[in-house]
Design a binder for these strands. Structure first.
Lengths: 348, 348
DNA sequence: ATGAAAGCGCTAACAC
DNA sequence: GTGTTAGCGCTTTCAT
């Protein structure tokens, strides 16, 4: 074995070592090198050994791009996200642990330019990668329906359009939200606000539905003044959060159920800024249970989505589809309420 | 504008829409389509419009792979990790937020097969992607020295070989570790164990160095029986953790300083299993401050690395190198002790 | 203003 | 057993 860790000074031009470099040095054709590298039959063992030696010497590694272009399959699974934020990275951890031992490699691509507002990133990313770079894809919170017409299997996680069209993995948004609000009701809260997500997103609608169900069930009417659109992101949640906590007229709510943890965390910040104590003056509940929700002060009560498991299940589903194993189109996992310190009895 | 969201039934064969499909439908050559798509000069506006119409109709998006192969630059920055675990994903969040608005896209690749034990994954991944798919790369905790001989700029984050060779971003491991152990000393602990990382890794060595410095400074000798190799991973930390907590002879330590959070969290689990109360019977300190460290019970006291910032700085450094702006080769960021509930006064 | 042709690095038929 | 050739989808001279 030669010193694979050294950089050879073999080529005049800088840059990567290609298959033709190996071929030239080994004195064979590129086809032969290709065969050796891919363990194809029909190569004399002496030749193979010599080529392997050169490969090691030069530190050659085949270009994923060139290989992908020529081959039909790449053994790479894509994870398409708008950006790498807490939600998508939690999923990624689950996907990553599930991919170990399957022979597939993971390629996470963030093509959603500047945040989550730009729609259509998933179609664009899929088109750019499908069929050439990746064999199949997991798309995180797509905002549009993805047909599999790009030619590769797709599993959508928490699709914002509801489980139609593609294979999907999501969690029970309605029940989760209902339980969260029931928890607040049980603590004696009556003026419970809802900082919603985006009205065009299915998950946000379902969470609001759960909110309304819980209120109805408790015989509490929904006060429209206590329901605001928050948009899921700290920036977009700022104004509505302030409107909720510093009402121009009427009473302040004693609790806020936010549509996701990022908004809930921002509510915590606004509350602190306004001098409101949590949970003495105000209770706050989030949704998702991203790890960050445990690091706030006080730690956030939230509805846990089993994010790691959702990622792992999505990968398994994708691999099954890829290999032709029949699967249910949709998988819905249960949520669970995680009670931490941001919720307490309603102020007297 | 046509209905870009629809899938056209234009082609007989399934699969992605290629540039030749567009060319055929629009009645022009592929060269012209390429020019239009890339805004090159020398295309009649009428032709351009027609082509754009077909592009929209067919939902064409150029293949990243094919384009990369032909072009020299791709406008994609790679993040190479062994796997997507808490540490690398925190970095990824910082990188992702820093990349917004730069015009670059992010491609995170996990080529480290089954965990962190396999060495050389970084060289392999780099070779497979460099020069074709990505213009530059951030490599997370590489275990070997990476020359830039792959032809693209590289920034290593927390390299396990120390800041040599490439551009690097890391944090002050020694000081962080020293402060952690000084915290334990201040709480009255004298029998302080160290569950180390891998002996071949610079960061692990520096953390052990800090541990020794703190003990020396307090006039406490290092008891070799209290120092174990933990390997940074829960599985590898299991046996040494048990040896430490259930000593065959001698006294049990009253505190453990683990080389990273993942090991520290495992110590917490082993302690719970053995019926040890934390922090009454045993104090535990970790290193890294991954979000998960706040979710344990009790929440873990740890040395925070500014992971988001490290990621963001790494990206900025990389972009500077890419654009030829002169930069210091190394950036070392300070750590800070985060005291939570896993540390308390030494038992009497 | 447009198209023909070469070639990026690689693999797969098919010849020799 | 080995080399030659074609071509994956795209960009880029260079003719026309």
């Amino acid at each position: 074995m030669s010193t694979a860790a050294d950089q050879p000074a073999a080529q005049p031009y800088t840059g990567r070592v290609t298959i033709s470099d190996v071929a030239r040095v080994a004195g064979v054709s590129v086809a032969t090198v290709s065969k050796v590298v891919n363990n194809r039959y029909g190569v004399a063992s002496a030749t193979a050994e010599r080529v392997l030696g050169v490969v090691a010497d030069l530190g050659y590694e085949s270009s994923l791009v060139a290989r992908s272009l020529r081959r039909q399959s790449t053994n790479v699974v894509g994870v398409l996200v708008a950006e790498f934020e807490p939600y998508s990275t939690e999923l990624l951890k689950g996907i990553s642990s599930a991919v170990a031992g399957t022979g597939y490699e993971l390629l996470a691509y963030s093509g959603g330019s500047d945040g989550g507002t730009v729609t259509g990133w998933e179609r664009r990313s899929l088109s750019r990668l499908a069929g050439t770079l990746i064999d199949a894809a997991i798309v995180v919170t797509p905002t549009m329906v993805l047909s599999e017409a790009n030619g590769i299997p797709v599993v959508a996680v928490d699709p914002h359009t509801g489980p139609e069209g593609t294979h999907t993995v999501d969690s029970d948004n309605t029940t989760g939200a209902r339980e969260a609000v029931e928890h607040l009701v049980a603590l004696g809260h009556r003026r419970i606000a809802h900082l919603g997500g985006r009205t065009d997103l299915e998950s946000a609608r379902l969470r609001e539905l759960g909110y309304r169900q819980a209120l109805d069930g408790a015989g509490i009417g929904v006060d429209p003044a206590l329901v605001r659109v928050g948009g899921y992101r700290p920036e977009t949640a700022d104004t509505p959060a302030r409107e909720l906590l510093r009402p121009t007229r009427g009473e302040r709510p004693t609790a806020v159920f936010a549509a996701n943890d990022q908004s809930a965390i921002h509510v915590l910040e606004v509350a602190a800024e306004l001098g409101l104590r949590v949970p003495e003056d105000l209770s706050v509940v989030g949704f998702d249970n991203i790890p960050e929700s445990a690091t706030t002060s006080p730690p956030l009560t939230t509805v846990a989505q089993p994010l790691h498991r959702m990622g792992a299940e999505a990968l398994r589903m994708l691999l099954d589809v890829l290999e032709g194993t029949p699967r249910e189109q949709h998988l819905r996992l249960p949520t669970s309420l995680v009670v931490r310190a941001s919720t307490g009895p309603a102020p007297a």
